[in-house]
Design a protein around this nucleic acid. Structure first.
Lengths: 300, 300
DNA sequence: GATAACGTTTTTTATTATAAAGTGCAGTCT
DNA sequence: AGACTGCACTTTATAATAAAAAACGTTATC
């Protein structure tokens, strides 16, 4: 019923490592200095020093801390489970939803998910609270959560919203200054697309990554935190969806490459309207793919 | 260290009220029926029945539950603190930020806020986790939260994003079918604007409400959960900001009414391009107002 | 013999208690 | 005077737990 002491354990080992660089008899820096170096509060540093003293590694009296002996392997503290990053949780959650085709309306059990993903319950609660802002999950009347996304309606609305954001980005991209690093990156992307196009019959799987790179490049033009936040979720959902929709993968990807190239052509010609038209065509295809993959799953 | 029993208390009183409608000697419906009526699980219903039996209000044996006596005032259970809605918290939080001019970067203490708003800590955590998705707050490296919004950058990005969404809505509105209830609502809004315009010198305060109505009407055209979710936050921020920016309020509001009317004119003429132009002008003014009010506060 | 209700057990959620970590300040040492 | 420590206080992250919900046989009723 308290927080974990991973911080302390990591700091202790860090200080131990630091001691290993000194010779016995050396003075050890101040608590403040150590706390800055280990990125941890003075309270933790003091706890570490106390342990070092207890184990006879240092002597500690007031502000005089002296290294008595070199630290050995056995002095180190074990560090338990490694922390999972929020992004990782995000990905695994969407992956799970799509992989097992969780239907809209399914109650989500925090306890269950917490076991499944090996993440503390309160982290999951925070995570779901965040997703609820995007309408992907919602609170149930009698407590708990419910998956509300991944219906046809959801897909249409998601695609429409994505189109609004991305067409805006395309328009801005076309008007980017000539010395913007965007242009050289775009030229690299063109080469990558042409190259993949040639070996599409065998390498069509690797399009997924290229697709994400391409869209990220376009959207990266817009310097807007709201835009970026949303784009992150959108691309995540599309990414995972495509990953799990295997129908006609080769044909779909070959077609998408052509559509991407059309957008690149228009952009490099600084033809904003043309780029928007090409992008709209591509986004429409995307929308249809997302919808048909949902329909496919509904029938299954 | 357990959840509150408000649910039980409310259900108990509800069942008591129901008993009051019966005559002594009557049979009481099944546990399931009661649970459906009180919107509560059977477990809670059984707890209520047990208490009723204990207090001699009913007899209870298997599925035979009989009302023994009429319930009296003293049988009722006290209900503690009333639940605050998440929307309420949202409003109060933004209000607090603006009222006290909390600068960007300020650490937010859950413990402190929880006392201030009289909301359990875990609810605040969820709330902040939601806001973090909009970039309004962020986690601090060593734990806790930090207010990251309400800088000039933030205001610009927020306004730009708002403009993107709202111009899209205006364009859609102009193309709404003639029988859409939107048109009659718009006509009502025109009257309200004209009326307020005439008594602007005295009633300029009441523009805030009308402004919200107007924008909500326009944005209501778009049937898209992402759009709506974002619009909610945006309008909340603008709303509270305007509420606290008192400089030139009369002039600002008078000008805004004219700008609204220009948008209405263009919409009623089904002139999509004209409406977008008028809306862009209005949104630009809004952006400037938001920015200048921030600057004003920074200097103070 | 099907359906609805009950009694009981298991699971899950909301809330609190608490150890760990962080913060601030008065006083001390150099 | 400036940096450092000792100590008290505050805040956060997390586990423990009572309340509520859900699941599951069993029993009564039509």
């Amino acid at each position: 019923m308290a927080r974990s002491d991973t911080r302390y354990r990591e700091a202790f080992n860090a200080i131990l490592d630091f001691c290993a660089t000194l010779a016995p008899g050396s003075l050890i820096p101040s608590e403040q200095t150590l706390s800055e170096r280990t990125n941890v509060s003075r309270t933790v540093v003091r706890r570490c020093l106390a342990r070092l003293q207890e184990h006879g590694v240092i002597s500690w009296q007031g502000r005089e801390k002296v290294l008595l002996r070199m630290p050995v392997r056995n002095d180190r503290l074990e560090i338990g489970a490694l922390k999972v990053s929020p992004e990782d949780l995000e990905g695994r959650f969407l992956d799970w939803i799509l992989r097992f085709d969780i239907p809209a309306g399914t109650p989500l059990s925090i306890a269950d998910l917490s076991r499944k993903f090996e993440v503390p319950q309160h982290e999951l609660k925070e995570f779901l609270a965040g997703l609820s802002r995007f309408g992907l999950v919602a609170r149930r009347p009698k407590g708990g959560w419910r998956l509300s996304g991944f219906t046809a309606d959801f897909a249409v609305e998601l695609s429409d919203f994505r189109a609004l954001l991305e067409l805006n980005a395309v328009r801005q991209a076309a008007n980017a200054p000539p010395d913007d690093p965007f242009w050289s990156a775009l030229s690299d992307l063109r080469s990558a697309h042409v190259s993949l196009s040639k070996r599409i019959d065998t390498d069509y799987h690797s399009f997924s990554g290229l697709d994400e790179q391409f869209h990220q490049r376009i959207n990266g033009i817009v310097r807007n935190r709201f835009f970026k936040e949303f784009q992150k979720v959108i691309s995540l959902i599309f990414h995972y969806h495509y990953l799990w929709n295997k129908a006609d993968e080769r044909e779909r990807n070959a077609a998408a490459i052509e559509e991407h190239l059309a957008i690149i052509d228009a952009l490099e010609a600084r033809d904003a309207d043309g780029a928007v038209v090409a992008a709209r065509r591509h986004l429409d295809t995307s929308k249809m793919t997302l919808l048909s993959s949902l329909r496919y799953h509904e029938l299954a």
